[in-house]
Design a protein around this nucleic acid. Structure first.
Length: 217
DNA sequence: GCCCAGGTGTTTC
DNA sequence: GAAACACATGGG
């Protein structure tokens, strides 16, 4: 059902339409839900296959201990970090993953020091960190480093599938390339687009191809 | 109780 | 290489 048979050009046309409709229906989202770049990085790792509400608890406990800080996070031992992020699930794994990317960031000299590195090179370096895959890398690039990349996540896939813009068999790179080719290569646009897709997915389209009140109906 | 959630790395065929 | 599996908590 809903197999997408169209050309890339058709995808671009329809995807732009989806973006315009969502923007009109919901307005700008002003994402990501975080107060600092390091908080974005933490959220991006902790939300892997995990609901955001569970991540929020973990971030709150890090905030209480003044650990939303690159240097402090780099310094804290894993055995002390692990219990603080327990609520985000897979917490032993995520402790290692977080330490890995935080270690790299700190070693580089922090976020500002990355500004001279081109986006493709930066993405490669992020992917070299243990536990940073394509989605986590792109989330960090877009929401923490202001780079113009499109983030493909479970919400994006679900929406694209529901509206016949994907079959479900596409790989990460394929959807990312298609989406990026459909939109202006600007951080603000790609940020909004992904945020709007998440907003839609959280409210609508959880089980049926379309629901009443859906902005895309 | 059972299913699901903003993935990724490892193991197995 | 694709498919299957491990990783873990909290909410519906």
């Amino acid at each position: 059902m809903n197999r997408y048979q169209g050309t890339a050009e058709r995808f671009r046309t329809e995807f732009r339409l989806v973006y315009r409709r969502l923007l009109r229906a919901f307005g700008p989202q002003g994402w990501w839900p975080a107060e600092s770049r390091i908080e974005v990085v933490i959220g991006a790792v902790l939300t892997q296959n995990t609901s955001w509400s569970n991540v929020e608890r973990a971030i709150a406990s890090l905030r209480e201990r003044r650990l939303l800080d690159l240097a402090r996070l780099d310094r804290i031992p894993e055995r002390k970090l692990a219990p603080l992020i327990r609520s985000s699930g897979f917490y032993r794994l995520k402790t290692r993953r977080l330490k890995s990317v935080v270690g790299w960031l700190h070693e580089q000299g922090g976020f500002a020091a990355l500004s001279s590195i081109p986006t493709t090179g930066l993405r490669t370096r992020l992917l070299e960190c243990h536990g940073v895959g394509p989605e986590t890398a792109d989330s960090i690039l877009l929401y923490a480093l202001d780079r113009p990349v499109f983030v493909v996540d479970a919400y994006t896939r679900r929406i694209l599938y529901r509206y016949g813009l994907a079959t479900g068999g596409e790989g990460y790179a394929e959807l990312k390339t298609l989406a990026e080719s459909a939109l202006p290569r600007r951080t603000a646009v790609l940020n909004e687009c992904h945020a709007l897709l998440v907003r839609l997915a959280k409210v609508h389209c959880r089980s049926a191809p379309c629901c009443t009140g859906c902005p895309l109906a």
